[in-house]
Design a binder for these strands. Structure first.
Lengths: 265, 265
DNA sequence: AAGTGGTCTAGACCACGGG
DNA sequence: CCGTGGTCTAGACCACTTC
């Protein structure tokens, strides 16, 4: 279970990190408590400050600690919000089973005692290769992207982007740079393109610099990425890519008579 | 989109990281190519070696680079394997819709031209708080954990753990320290506890040290964690937690007549 | 002003991989 | 053996937060 080392002891900073991890798991500091300052750790363990920083780096990159300049280093503690992924397989006839207007999410959040706000924008760009492929387009074809930037209690929460074939969106309210009343689903329904099926791909990866900046997340927090391709009988309708800061939510999929005993502590 | 700074320029190592990121995205190095060695970067940019290392740290933690001691620093490139999550809502009557014996996964891998091998073990432990809650047990109650360690082409791939109430598993083949022929589903069916519904929670987080060691992943690679609670009419049956190295697979959920145009490049 | 983390340098030695 | 990345030290100054 350990990486082989030629008899050599583990490096100081790793042993230091392991000891801090042990103390954290032993509950030596609770909640969002402050850890000893770097100078104290330096003295306590008898190492150079750089070594202390290397050790703390490890725990920061594991998502256990956060550093705040001028204040200190703290235990991370984040509430997690369960976000229902609308696959809702038991409601096959229902139109909003595959996607839902933002009102649904706003209501879901309010039920959980949280406040969800949404910024909207629309842009026309060349399709990413994977989006082009999923929509059955030639590479670099233009797509209309309708984007929702969601904040939960003022905190950046998710970025949802719907990608439409330019030809499909042209001349429809999908070109409007504002949310469609009732959601894009309403618009698609009026065009006779109600979505009847979907495939979701779930992935996780570290954020790039822009994503880290927008989400206001530091090292150690991955993104959870949901890529949904919806279809109607004529073919693919849109690609919906939603990115979540993984320390702020989980996605929930249900099937059958699924009951959920309650949130995870 | 940028973190505010009081007129001060970004630190050297961040500018260096940004420049390397730009060069990477510009395609200056392809595939798994080797980057210039630290000494060269030090000279080229006119900074101390530590500053070079801080910059490379950033890109390693973003999952873009891997460092190999004694060899060099390389662009990361990983094939991604799509793993079908067995929700299969369109086959409501089918018993293996909520879980499947490992043969199913082995076959799925072989279809993709990959080889899946599985190690199995069984242990009895105190339930984690979240598992106890989902199974409706008092905290610290004993649970039987049946664990499958999966390798894809010899590479660590996933850890799947089924947690059963001790009382449910007692005196059944679920206590055997080996895989049940036909899967645990077969055993449950014989006990009259066929699973009819499930709730999945999807999360992402960074691995702890043991997980990083087992998966042989370095910094910058999160885990994708699927937590499935299955039910029959009498209540919760088991908690299945599956952890994946996120650079090696994605999870796929389908509903309706879902068609998938093909894998992402 | 004092205390915290953030950045940076210069130099040293070690461990690993491959010729 | 050499070149690579890995670890560690000592010390300096900066930027931010709090009082």
């Amino acid at each position: 279970m350990t990486i082989p080392r030629g008899g050599a002891p583990a490096p100081k900073y790793q042993r230091l990190a392991a000891d801090l991890r042990r103390r954290i798991e032993a509950g030596e500091w609770q909640g969002g408590a402050q850890l000893p300052v770097e100078g104290d750790l330096e003295q306590h363990y008898g190492v150079a400050r750089n070594t202390v920083r290397l050790a703390v780096d490890v725990l920061v990159n594991e998502g256990r600690l956060v550093r705040m300049q001028g204040k200190g280093t703290y235990l991370k503690q984040q509430p997690v919000f369960d976000h229902r992924a609308y696959l809702a397989a038991r409601l096959p006839g229902q139109r909003d089973a595959l996607a839902a207007p933002s009102e649904v999410y706003t209501r879901e959040a309010r039920t959980a005692g949280r406040r969800l706000t949404v910024d909207f924008d629309m842009l026309v760009v060349r399709a990413r290769p994977d989006v082009a492929q999923r929509l059955g387009l030639p590479p670099d074809d233009a797509v209309v992207v309708r984007r929702q930037l969601r904040l939960l209690d003022r905190e950046p929460y998710s970025i949802e982007e719907s990608h439409y074939r330019a030809g499909l969106a042209a001349g429809t309210p999908l070109m409007d740079p504002e949310p469609a009343p009732g959601g894009d689903e309403q618009v698609l329904a009026a065009m006779g393109r109600s979505e009847t099926s979907a495939v979701d791909h779930l992935a996780a990866r570290m954020p790039g610099p822009e994503e880290a900046a927008w989400f206001e997340i530091g090292p150690g927090v991955p993104l959870l990425v949901q890529t949904r391709v919806t279809h109607d009988r004529r073919g693919p309708v849109r690609v919906i890519e939603t990115r979540y800061a993984a320390d702020r939510c989980r996605l929930v999929y249900e099937v059958g008579e699924g009951r959920e005993p309650g949130p995870r502590p």
